[in-house]
Design a binder for these strands. Structure first.
Lengths: 210, 210
DNA sequence: ACTTGTGAAATCGTTCACAGCG
DNA sequence: CGCTGTGAACGATTTCACAAGT
């Protein structure tokens, strides 16, 4: 009973996703137990790191045995909050927004995009990837109806600030920000920036080095 | 002249992208100089961090003045390797692959998707977002012709390993991996995992906490 | 004999703070 | 006098290493 109720370091939470994804795969393969060693090895991490990360949340293993895959999957989902499905809204049905609406991978991991929002008459009223595109003015009503707490923001830079305020007013408390701009956020809201071009830049840097 | 020729920490390179994006924006606004302080502030970082990060690569500022925006943009592009356009291939024209092909944002940052590859007859021969989808067997020829070094991998888990080997054989040395699986990579190749669902999980964790 | 959980040590990254330049 | 560049101090994260459980 060590480090409960500390703030959890961000790198730990990132790895939790990694563990969950891998354990889910192992469960589907019919694997019933894993050691921190084998789990770590398959993810290019160390066994001590796996144990320490899990140790932030409880004692899930058995000395001499390892971890039971099924129960650990459930535990990680509970910790990450994906033991229930989160309704998500997407704001900004431009190139990237429409691209994300066509992506089907969120569902399997516990997130359902229930509606998209934009202001352009050309997209409002359409249905993209099975998701209806509504006018932004419908956001508060719809967010309230579904109890939406998370949003994907994919608007141009200059619209990001206003959109973020509308999201906050509608009760959204977590934003995945694809807009290429930093955003000051209220204390009760979490913003995670994602920049796909930046990911390629990281590769470009490392590949260019040698 | 301190720390040249050290290995550069990954967080530093990530912030380089951030600096470049912001400086490019400032340049377009007609701003000609910035201090580490003002740049840091707009990105929620500290001035010391900005100076130290740039210090890995040289001395670009002037005491008492700050940094000249235009020259620093050029310098950062050179450092990140995006002073020239990188041709990129995409492998896997499923949901996510097609979504990424429709995204137009890579171009502006120095990356051009020149072709996509798949094995499914249903997509091979099509043109998605202005990019032709070819059979994977055309990969070596096309990669050689364009001198492609970077790839975006968006195939299902079970195809990832084989695809990675084909990419390596075709001369690709950097892979942006959207497949939800860890991949062992040869020493001469860099793999960067991207998992959009995991990004939402990080939000879900933080929002669920309070 | 194997494997967990965890303090202690080591490593890595950030922030401080100031000498020196423009 | 403002601001950079950078050692030194600090803080965070990872790895080590081992006592204890099965």
């Amino acid at each position: 009973m060590p480090n409960r109720n500390q703030p959890i370091p961000a790198p730990v939470v990132r790895r939790l996703s990694l563990y969950l994804r891998r354990l889910d795969y192992l469960a589907n393969q019919g694997v019933e137990k894993v050691s921190s060693r084998s789990l770590a090895e398959s993810l290019s991490l160390t066994d001590a790191q796996v144990r320490k990360d899990l140790g932030y949340f409880g004692q899930f293993g058995r000395a001499g045995v390892g971890y039971l895959v099924g129960p650990l999957v459930e535990e990680l989902k509970r910790i990450l909050g994906t033991d229930k499905v989160w309704p998500v809204v997407l704001v900004g049905a431009g190139d990237l927004g429409r691209a994300l609406l066509r992506y089907k991978g969120f569902r399997r991991r516990g997130f359902e995009v229930v509606a998209a929002f934009d202001v352009a008459a050309a997209v409002v009223g359409r249905n993209i990837g099975g998701v209806p595109v509504l006018h932004i003015r419908e956001l508060p009503k719809l967010a309230a109806r579904h109890g939406v707490k998370l949003a994907i923001l994919a608007v141009p830079t200059e619209a990001a600030q206003v959109a973020a305020e509308q999201l906050h007013a509608a009760g959204i408390r977590g934003i995945l920000n694809f807009a290429p701009t930093a955003m000051p956020s209220p204390a009760d809201t979490v913003v995670r920036p994602v920049d796909l071009a930046s990911e390629l830049e990281q590769l470009s840097f490392r590949v260019g080095q040698k």
